[in-house]
Amino acid sequence: MKLSDLQQWRERAVRDVSLRGERRAWRIVISMGTSGIAAGARDVMRAIMDEIERQELECVEVSLTGSLGMDDFEPVLRVEHAGEEVVYGRLTPDAARRIIAEHVRQGRKVERYVIGLPKERE
């Protein structure tokens, strides 16, 4: 291991802490059933992944699921954090980037795309 590796490692650790998160504190579930895919879920997924890479976010876990059952609002995704769930719909890649920038990074929901009320998990 070189000194530069250690420095990189430290920078990443500092960044992670500054995201007030333990690792994987955020979970994003993308609806990828037939209607989601037809409506553009693949591009939404791409936008999320591009942001995770670009902003070096270690705190986000992403998964795809068959369908979240909200076909009329596709593309749809659900953000889960600290027991709270928010469902966003009628998304575009730009909307997905905003969800990362505003909701995940600043804790501020992107109201314009919210379709499901936050639900406290048991």
Partner: peptide, 10 residues
Amino acid sequence: ETIFALCLGA
């Protein structure tokens, strides 16, 4: 894009 979404989403 399909491969990317699939192997990173799952």
